[in-house]
Amino acid sequence: MTRYLLAGAFALGLSAGVAGPANAQSTADPAMNAPDQVAWQFFIQANSRAGGSNSVFETWASDTDTFQPNPQFPTAPTPPSLRRPVLPQVAREGVEAAGGLLPALPPGISDGVTEETRRNKAAFDFIVQNNLYKVSGLKAAFGKSLSFPIDSIEVKANWMPVSAIPAFTNNRVTVAQVPQLYHVNSAGGVQYAMVAMHVISKAVPNWTWATFEHSLNPSRCDILGCRDAFGAQQPFVPSNRAAGQGYPNCAKTPALTAMLNGADIDPVYQNYCLKGSQSDFVDNTGLDIRVGNSVTEEGFVATASCMTCHGRAVWNKNGQPTSQAGFLSFGPNGPIGPLGPLLPTWYWSFTSQPPIFQGKSGLTRTATSADFVWSIPFCAIDDTQTPVQQSNCAGK
Rank of each mutant, 00 (worst) to 15 (best):
S26W: 08
P85V: 04
F57L: 08
S26P: 12
A46W: 02
L12N: 08
Q72S: 14
Q25W: 07
P77Q: 07
R83Y: 10
A50Q: 01
N70M: 09
P88D: 05
F43S: 01
A19Y: 09
A61P: 00
Q25I: 11
A39W: 06
P35F: 11
T66N: 02
A22T: 13
P79T: 02
A46G: 04
A24T: 09
T75H: 09
P80I: 01
A61Y: 09
E58S: 06
L82P: 02
F10S: 12
N33T: 12
D29Y: 11
G17K: 14
S15D: 13
S62D: 09
F42G: 02
A24L: 11
F43V: 04
F43Q: 00
G17Y: 10
S55I: 09
G17P: 10
F67N: 00
Q25C: 13
P35R: 01
A61F: 02
A16G: 14
V56T: 07
A39Y: 02
A61T: 07
S26R: 15
A28K: 07
N33S: 09
A34F: 02
G51W: 04
G8E: 13
Q45L: 13
G52S: 13
R84S: 15
P35W: 08
T78F: 00
S26F: 10
V86S: 14
G52K: 05
P74D: 02
N54M: 12
S26E: 14
P30R: 03
A24D: 07
R83M: 11
V86T: 09
A76D: 08
L12Q: 15
P85Y: 04
T59K: 07
Q72P: 10
S26N: 07
P77K: 03
G52P: 05
F57P: 06
G52N: 06
W60P: 01
L12W: 14
F67G: 04
L14Q: 15
